[in-house]
Design a protein around this nucleic acid. Sequence first.
DNA 1: GCTTGACCTCAAGTTAGCTTGAGGTTGTAG
DNA 2: CTACAACCTCAAGCTAACTTGAGGTCAAGC
Lengths: 146, 146
Amino acid sequence: MNGNQLISIGTLSERTGVSVSAIRFYEQKGLIESLRSGGNQRRFLRSDIRRISFILIAQKLGLGLAEIETELARLPQGRTPTKHDWEKVSRSIRSQLDAKIALLERTRAKLDGCIGCGCLSLKNCRLYNPNDEAGESGSGPRFVLG
Amino acid sequence: MNGNQLISIGTLSERTGVSVSAIRFYEQKGLIESLRSGGNQRRFLRSDIRRISFILIAQKLGLGLAEIETELARLPQGRTPTKHDWEKVSRSIRSQLDAKIALLERTRAKLDGCIGCGCLSLKNCRLYNPNDEAGESGSGPRFVLG
DNA sequence: GCTTGACCTCAAGTTAGCTTGAGGTTGTAG
DNA sequence: CTACAACCTCAAGCTAACTTGAGGTCAAGC
């Protein structure tokens, strides 16, 4: 253990609680980068511990890896993010959260309007014909919460 | 078109807007059932139009097919659901929606408490170490909203 | 110098919710 | 009675976010 800041994938895994395979997966997806040792083993910067922490937090906030990648792009590579960096990102995430809550609340309001109506008629139902789109996109997981 | 109530898969698809392949998929998953014609073609009851409508609505409410199957089990097979049937199911769904909104709101509150703290420290962060579990389960899509 | 554990790559498997395609049959309009 | 649309059954593919496994390399202790 000399003075440099490089850590192995195993150490990064221990420090973050993220499995080794998941870290490799994140790297492959471009969420983090690594150097290589002489023997082709990955070497990460200590600051990657925070980068991974960020990924974990953002996931808990309901962001997908693609969205997280976008947010990560706002953070500095290799440097510990400042308060200001973090604020920018937090506010961006906060507005995404707001939108999701708002969508669910609109849906709930429609459901309340429908309870007891027994309509289930595709032509009239406000739930079935909403103007906003939950679970309407093409493929992949849609609108699933925990 | 004689007096009976049986419709083909194509008709069911047209009436609901759900693709033929999706209907077959739902049948395979046990969400709907079908009879067969002499030539082995599916024949559905007219009431299955409502059953499918219900699936669509429940999906918009954020339920997965497995959860929808559970809710469908509360509805009568072959009979048009009464107001009472529908109310029971609506209230069950409403409470699931409530739970999801509540979880998101707790998460947002934590984020607000964190904006500007710049911690990103795994040991201390309330976002990283929440007591409730969003996106914690084993596999599959987790905690993704539209 | 050998064993052991951490690491490497690449391929395939997992769940959800479907779609797409191949290859074959049915039903109906003309 | 023939054409053609609609139907049938598998099987495989798609996205997300990973895991698991096979088969091989690297590094360190004894």
